[in-house]
Each structure stands twice: as structure tokens, then as C-alpha cells.
Simulated assay, not measured.
Amino acid sequence: MNYKIIGDSDAPIVDITLSSGETIKVERGAMAFMQNVSLQAETNSKKSGFGGLVGAIARSAVSGESMFITKAVGQAEGARLGIAPAVPGKVACLNVGGGNQYRLNTGAFLACDDSVFYNIKRQDIGKAFFGGTGGLFVMETEGNGQVLINAFGDLVVLDITPNAPMAIDNEHVVAWEASLDYNIRVASGTFGFMSGEGLVNEFHGTGKVIIQTRNVHSLADAVAKYIPTSNN
């Protein structure tokens, strides 16, 4: 995937150049501009036909993502596609392949090569609170190629080592290496919810966790008090 990130660094657009016949997958609704590109809506599943439809429905129900994904196909050499994330923030590229795969939190996916997939992975009951909509399932990449992810705010990479596990707030986790293990716990003991921190993910092992510097829910809570309601 040949791309460059243009525009404001805090609210960028990704300008992708495609060869004739080259295909990439794009988050539904992310297209900002295109030239010599055709867009095709397909069910969000590796399978075709009825089995693919059932799989897409299942993915949507358990992960909160759309049943459909957009495939962009270059119709000529030098075709261009501009894509923009739903929220202001940085965009980064993950190189995946072989043993180097990632798990993505809800809303992190922006685009990927056609050779990359992301699948449902069932979690243990004790991890069912991970993310906003993941529940018992999270998404894991598969295949070889590039994946573009987006964040609300900046992106920061944290290194986890066996002798130094790290607790990270659910709402700040964007992606993490699939080799890492983690468990869910209350941030500050029995009365953690009273401190306002709630649940955190404590990551163990060796690998990287990519976090965002802001989270949408905190912003929503901050502005909610200024939004008029029918009672005031």
C-alpha cells in the first residue's frame, strides 16, 4: 500500500496511490476523495455467499463493527484515494505478518492491504470487559501486509517486558501485539470506581501496546453538562 499522510498532523487525511487492479480494504464511510478508483461494499467476512453473510452478522453483533467493509480498486495506474478517520487524531501503520500480529480495539481500524484480514478471537470470561463493545471477543489481524490504524489524539507506543507489566485504561488502548497476555482489574483496589479510574487492562509478557492520548468518552462527559436538555 503506497500512501502518504497529508493535512494537519492532528486531523490528517491519508492519500493512497493504487496501481491498476490493486485492491485495499477501507473502513466504511472513510472515503474523502478518489480518482480512478471504484468502491465496492462487501460483507465483512473472508467467506462468500450465505456463509459470509452469517459471518459478517456475527462479527457485527459481537464486535460493534459494521457488517460491511469497503473495497477500493484502482482503475488505472496512479489511481488515488483519500481516506479520513471519524475522529481527529493521528494515523499510524502496523506491519503484520507471520508471528507479528496485532489485536485491535473497537474503532481502531482504518484500512489495510487486501492480503490482510482481521478475525474474531474469543476471550476468557475474566477479560470480557475489554473495550467499549468487544465483550467476549476482540479482533486479531491475520495475513501479511500493512494495516492503518487511527486514534483520538496522539499515538504512543509502550513496551511491555516480563518483569514490568503495565496497567492501561480501557479507553486509551488502540492496539497491542497478539503475543501479549492481559487481565482486567479495578484500577485502585476495592474502591477503584470511586477514584474515577474504573477498569484497566494489565498487560503481561513481551510486546508493544499502542495507546491514544485522549478518549472519546471523557470528552463526551466533559461537554455533556453544557448541552441543553428538555429540563433546562
Rank of each mutant, 00 (worst) to 15 (best):
V157W: 07
K47W: 07
T106P: 11
I57Q: 08
V116P: 14
M34T: 08
Y102W: 13
T43N: 14
W176N: 07
F152I: 10
A175P: 06
E22A: 00
A41Y: 03
G132P: 09
D221G: 09
K47V: 05
G198P: 03
A56Y: 07
A76G: 00
G207A: 08
A41V: 14
G192R: 10
G145C: 04
Q123T: 10
V54D: 04
T23M: 05
G7R: 03
Q212E: 09
N105Q: 08
M139K: 04
S230H: 05
V174R: 10
A79W: 07
F109A: 07
E27K: 14
N231F: 15
P165G: 10
G107N: 08
N119F: 12
G98K: 10
G49E: 08
F203A: 14
N144R: 02
G29W: 06
V14T: 04
Q101H: 05
V173C: 05
A58D: 02
I227Y: 15
E177I: 13
I6F: 12
L104M: 09
N119V: 11
V26P: 02
N170R: 08
D15Q: 05
V87G: 04
D159W: 01
A187G: 01
Q212S: 12
G153Q: 02
A175Q: 07
T161G: 01
I211M: 15
R59D: 00
G7I: 06
I211P: 10
H217R: 15
N105D: 06
L199E: 10
D181G: 13
D159E: 13
T229W: 06
N231A: 15
A84R: 15
S60Q: 00
V87Q: 11
I16R: 02
R214C: 03
K127E: 11
I24K: 00
F117K: 08
S19V: 00
G55K: 02
A164M: 12
R80S: 01
K121V: 11
G205F: 02
V156A: 10
Q75K: 06
S179F: 03
I184F: 12
D221P: 14
Y102L: 04
I227W: 12
Q75G: 01
S230I: 10
R122M: 14
V37S: 00
S60I: 00
A86H: 06
L53H: 11
M31Y: 05
A92M: 09
V96E: 12
I120K: 04
E177Q: 15
N232F: 14
R80F: 00
A58G: 14
G64L: 04
G126L: 05
